[in-house]
């Protein structure tokens, strides 16, 4: 039995119609709101975070940002541990839960993840994906202290 599910992008359709127009937006959507399509599809199983797991090292050994990321499963939960560049030793940010993502709506293998480190004076949104064997990590940094530092963005690359 098929069900009808909504989508916001054509790439979220699993079975685009072979005939007729591919786009089937809701008629009469209010101006300023997204008009959304629908598609019939079967349900997909859960994600496998296995492809993400392991210890990832910065491709730049002299990085002043993140040196190492450990992606693990703890009792079935996907976790992220980060070590930042520091002296005399790297700084352990601790281990938190992360959220894995696949490369499309039907895939089971996780190839991306996100996690939020709330360090009190600093909130760091990490959002990452694997591309050609490299883990690309975007870091969105928000200072919540009164240091006057600007929120900033960085991207770094990691290998296993």
């Amino acid at each position: 039995m098929s069900e009808t599910w909504r989508y916001a992008r054509l790439e979220e359709q699993l079975h685009p119609p072979q005939d007729g127009p591919e786009i089937a937006p809701d008629a009469g959507a209010p101006p300023g709101e997204a008009a959304l399509g629908t598609v019939e599809r079967p349900a997909a199983p859960g994600l496998d975070p296995g492809p993400l797991l392991g210890t990832w090292h910065n491709t730049n050994p002299r990085s002043r940002g993140i040196l190492r990321i450990d992606l693990e499963l703890h009792e079935g939960a996907f976790t992220v541990r980060v070590q930042g560049a520091g002296s005399p030793a790297p700084i352990d940010w601790g281990t938190i839960g992360g959220e894995p993502f696949a490369h499309d709506v039907a895939a089971r293998a996780a190839i991306a993840w996100s996690a939020l480190f709330d360090l009190g004076f600093l909130r760091i949104h990490l959002q990452a994906n694997i591309k050609q064997g490299v883990l690309v990590v975007a870091s969105f940094n928000e200072f919540v202290d009164d240091s006057g530092r600007t929120n900033y963005f960085t991207r770094e690359f990691f290998f296993r």
């Binding site: 069900e3 599910w5 909504r6 790439e11 979220e12 599809r41 079967p42 349900a43 997909a44 199983p45 859960g46 994600l47 959220e99 894995p100 993502f101 696949a102 490369h103 499309d104 709506v105 039907a106 895939a107 089971r108 190839i111 991306a112 996100s114 959002q127 994906n129 975007a138």
Partner: peptide
């Protein structure tokens, strides 16, 4: 880059796109 998560119980995988 977008991190997309379904809230509709459809079972579709959360997915990443750039």
């Amino acid at each position: 880059a977008s991190f997309n998560a379904w809230q509709d119980g459809s079972g579709r995988s959360p997915y990443f796109a750039r």
